[in-house]
């Protein structure tokens, strides 16, 4: 566990150094909003390899929290039952509830400490890109900050509760992986965007760092346009000589670009909502596991 996280952090540290220097040397630093706008094409090209690596590495970081569920949480009780060592653990003077609480406190502290350290590295590693791409509508959301820690804690709690129910290690690991994936994916895909009410704009101008949750063109008659129709419209407008004032021209024609988005300033609110929700569910699952161990015969 530690070695996986340590290795991951090392990779990020090494890559971070090269990315930070690439960021400066490529001139990307001058392309950021607020800086004097220069010509950024060359800088973007120079920086692209670094950015590709970033997206690969954030993809890898996504999977790390579930390891705490698979290797720490699921076997915690399941292996005791499976190998029969519960007969030792549950018959000591401390009793099974104190034994389990001690294990939970120790291992969840370990989980929180190591993931916090790891995400601190992620935050440093990703820092140059924050003003460029934002952190909300981006896979970095899951590895950056409290959500990363909460996802690991959640995996750990699911693992313990499933292990208490199934009492067999391999099935517990499988079910833990399944539950974690379902919750995490459904949160990312459909729940998160409803945490807060998105802001709306009628002219389609959304900050580059914001998370656009919906984007829709309507025609002068108020009907929604399909993607093909929009592309066609833009092509004909450009052909008609409105390449540079495309937005204004279409607006004058009665076309509206409605967009809903969450601004980057909401990042920590989103983190707090998602991490808080996962932490609350985790605590409930841990209480369930303690209750199962207390109530059920071994």
């Amino acid at each position: 566990m530690l070695s996986v996280m340590g290795l991951g952090a090392l990779v990020l540290l090494l890559d971070g150094r090269s990315m930070h220097s690439a960021f400066t040397s490529s001139g990307m630093i001058n392309c950021l909003p607020g800086h004097e706008a220069g010509y950024c094409g060359a800088a973007l090209d120079a920086f692209r390899p670094a950015q590709d690596r970033v997206s690969q590495l954030t993809g890898l970081c996504l999977a790390l929290p579930v390891l705490y569920g698979l290797f720490l949480g699921a076997p915690l009780l399941a292996r005791e039952y499976e190998s029969g060592t519960y007969r030792f653990a549950f018959t000591q003077g401390a009793g099974r509830v104190r034994w389990l609480i001690a294990k939970i406190v120790l291992l969840s502290s370990f989980t929180i400490a190591t993931t916090t350290a790891f995400t601190a590295v992620v935050m440093w590693w990703y820092s140059p890109l924050v003003p460029l791409t934002g952190r909300l509508g981006n896979t970095i959301f899951e590895s950056y900050g409290a959500v990363f820690v909460a996802r690991a804690l959640f995996a750990f709690a699911v693992g313990i509760a499933v292990g208490a129910l199934l009492r067999r290690t391999v099935p517990a690991i499988g079910v833990t992986l399944g539950v974690w994936l379902v919750v995490v994916i459904s949160t990312t895909v459909s729940l998160r965007q409803n945490f807060l009410t998105p802001l709306n704009t009628l002219n389609g101008t959304v900050p580059s760092t914001a998370w656009t949750v919906s984007s829709q063109w309507t025609g002068p008659d108020g009907h929604a346009l399909t993607g093909n129709q929009v592309a066609d419209l833009q092509y004909r407008a450009a052909e008609g000589g409105h390449k540079l004032d495309l937005g204004q021209y279409l607006a004058d024609q009665g076309y509206r670009h409605l967009a809903s988005y969450h601004p980057e300033s909401r990042f920590w609110s989103f983190q707090a909502i998602e991490a808080g929700g996962l932490a609350a569910v985790s605590v409930a699952l841990l209480i369930l596991a303690i209750w199962l161990v207390r109530r059920r015969a071994a």
């Binding site: 190998s83 029969g84 060592t85 519960y86 007969r87």
Partner: peptide, 16 residues
């Protein structure tokens, strides 16, 4: 009871 009764399970059941 647990603090005054010692138990040795079948096949010892210790952590290998």
């Amino acid at each position: 009871a647990l603090s005054t009764v010692g138990f040795v399970a079948q096949d010892a059941a210790l952590y290998p």
